[in-house]
């Protein structure tokens, strides 16, 4: 979205404030050494210098935005529509990742309950079919959810494409390699 707005001024002021916060609060409180330090009678560069240079870049950028580019004719800005869109996308992604993370252990829990065997997902995470449960369900939900967001509706076709795409990814990343773990099997 473009148009005459004060977004450069707002962005510039935010950058100056952020740079000041980094320079005067974050770096001093969160680095063990300052800009320079004395080590065995030698002066050396401390851990604080490099982030200070980074913050100075942000500060200069902010100041140039405020002082020089404040009145630029076309200033893109972030609208409510942008926030709504990305909010939905992030919601879909978080939900899909949660399904990916917990679908396998939950399935194993129910399988254990039904069969009476003592099954543990951590021990089964590199065995078929358990290792694919989370990725298949979470991955399908992610792809189908995002397609549905653009289409405005969830269709059987998009669901089928999503399942197929995840199966192809499994074939690409998992079947040929013994040493690769699909998500979430490295964490559980």
């Amino acid at each position: 979205m473009t148009g005459r707005s004060s977004s450069n001024l707002i962005l510039g002021l935010c950058c100056v404030a952020f740079a000041a916060l980094v320079l005067f609060v974050w770096i001093p409180l969160d680095s063990a050494s300052g800009i320079v330090q004395q080590v065995r009678r030698h002066l050396t560069i401390g851990d604080g210098l490099a982030p200070t240079v980074a913050a100075v870049f942000v500060l200069i950028g902010g100041l140039v935005l405020v002082l020089v580019e404040r009145n630029e004719p076309a200033q893109p800005r972030i609208s409510g529509g942008n926030i709504r869109f990305i909010g939905i996308v992030i919601g879909i992604l978080i939900a899909s990742l949660l399904v990916m993370r917990f679908a396998g252990p939950v399935t194993v829990y129910f399988a254990s309950f039904l069969t009476g065997d003592h099954l543990e997902y951590r021990l089964l995470r590199d065995t078929w079919p358990w290792k694919y449960v989370g990725y298949l369900l979470g991955g399908t939900m992610m792809i189908a959810g995002l397609i549905a967001q653009i289409d405005g509706r969830l269709t059987v076709r998009s669901l089928a494409i999503s399942v197929l795409a995840v199966l192809v990814l499994i074939a690409v990343y998992d079947l040929p390699f013994d040493d690769l773990l699909l998500p979430p099997n490295g964490d559980v």
Binding site: S31, A32, P51, A54, A55, G61, G62, V68, E69
Partner: peptide
């Protein structure tokens, strides 16, 4: 925009310096 380029580079530098450094304590963590 030169200002936005400097801002972008500054954020990139800041991001790479998180958790690194030579001290025992990982800076900016």
């Amino acid at each position: 925009s030169p200002a936005k380029g400097l801002l972008s580079a500054g954020l990139g530098l800041l991001a790479v310096y998180v958790g690194t450094g030579e001290d025992f304590y990982p800076r900016l963590s």
